[in-house]
């Protein structure tokens, strides 16, 4: 009897290279954004309705600078990668330049993220 169809973890091990990694990161970052927004909604609910310690604890987590570093990374990556895929989907004749499009994506991402993080650190140091 033939083996059942079962991809599972074998799919993760498939060596698709950079484009597959970008796709996986896009999915992961999408889930992370849902988690972050969910946390924000729950925290606001607790703060408004109960004014409880739970809200304060949640606020402490997502307002911490380290958490914000991660959030900005995730949102910026998700936005730029999504934009790249949308552009390639709308103008398929550009698909042959997808490698260049990925480079351009990182070329925009690195200075934008670097600048944002620098400003955040400077604000933090100034006690802002």
């Amino acid at each position: 009897m033939a083996l059942k169809r079962n991809v599972g973890l074998k799919g993760i091990k498939y060596r698709g290279g950079g484009p597959m990694l970008a796709w996986a990161l896009h999915r992961i970052s999408g889930l992370a954004i849902v988690l972050f927004v969910g946390l924000h909604v729950i925290s606001s609910f607790f703060m408004q309705q109960l004014g409880s310690d739970i809200a304060t604890a949640l606020n402490t987590v997502y307002e911490s600078i380290y958490f914000q570093f991660i959030v900005i990374f995730i949102v910026l990556f998700h936005a730029l990668n999504g934009l790249r895929v949308i552009i390639l989907d709308l103008w398929p004749q550009l698909i042959k330049f997808q490698r260049e499009a990925t480079w351009l994506q990182w070329l925009i991402f690195i200075p934008t993220y670097g600048m944002t993080v620098t400003i955040m650190i400077l604000n933090q140091l100034q006690g802002g």
Partner: peptide, 23 residues
């Protein structure tokens, strides 16, 4: 199709598969 490009990389005939799907 989520424009992952695995198909284009895997094609032994070097067909621009993702571009064909896009078209």
């Amino acid at each position: 199709c989520h424009t992952i490009f695995n198909c284009t990389t895997a094609c032994p005939r070097e067909i621009e598969v993702t571009q064909a799907i896009g078209e």
